[in-house]
Amino acid sequence: MIKTSLRAASVALAVVLALAPLPVMGAGGEHIVIDKQQWPFAGFRGQFNAGQLQRGFQVYQENCSSCHGLKRLAFRNLVQPGGPEFPEDSVKSLAAGWPNKITDGPNDKGKMFERPAKLSDPILGPHKNEAEARDAFNGALPPDFSVIAKARGIEPTAPWYTHIFLMMRDIATGYQEGGPDYIYALLTGYKNAPKDFNLSDGMNYNAAFPGHQIAMVPPLAKDNFVKYQDGKGSLEQNAKDVAAFLAWAADPSLNERKRIGWQVMLYLLVTTVLLFLAKKRIWSRIKH
């Protein structure tokens, strides 16, 4: 609870910081500060938490999936190790009941037909194509979510002389979570527009979105969030879980990658030390 309110406070602070220079700098050259969050899968030791991914999928299913597809993922991915790891049977019935059917065919009569999804089918959004989606959303296109967490990031805002040190820190700590950080900031970034802000018709004000005008209506709100199976939930918790889920969707091999990575690093370190000792021994034959 304290953590949540701290987080809310820090988001509020970030918003204040982001908005403060607005009147001076205008929309073009302004930097938006996105706070880094704590993620279980962050850094070089991080792994996805299946429970968080399951909650995140629930948020996606009940909230996001009415506009956004996940077409590069198949239902079978929800079962595989390193993901949400739902039981296979429940994913089978989830796929069969998924509202967006698979277009298959042609059948014996030469006609295309629709059928329920199977484990091997992609997780489709509600629209058959881009034109249909744009038609439904006033010309705006809800992007597919398969790689969205990789396609978003944080622009460095630090002054030039600290740039190299921050870069070194990110490399040393293995920081790759700009995408989920941004998604969290976006979902918790819906605010009332400042008085002097010129908001276009049909747009919504968002503190994290570049230019602050976003077509998407607030998907979550303080009093309108997804309740988990234990009856709990909050805007922040929803935002965090769905950001984690999308991070997995964009990088489903993360757990395996980092596990193998440690073995490779260990092998390389030991081999380098052994080679160095052998080299010292060989070069000790001559003065150098």
């Binding site: 990789k150 920081y175 790759q176 980092k258 990575g261 690093m265 380098t272």
Partner: peptide
Amino acid sequence: LIVFAWFVFFLPDYLGHA
């Protein structure tokens, strides 16, 4: 190769663009 592997396994997208 230690540096190389660090990027391959822990920062594969760091050097690219989102």
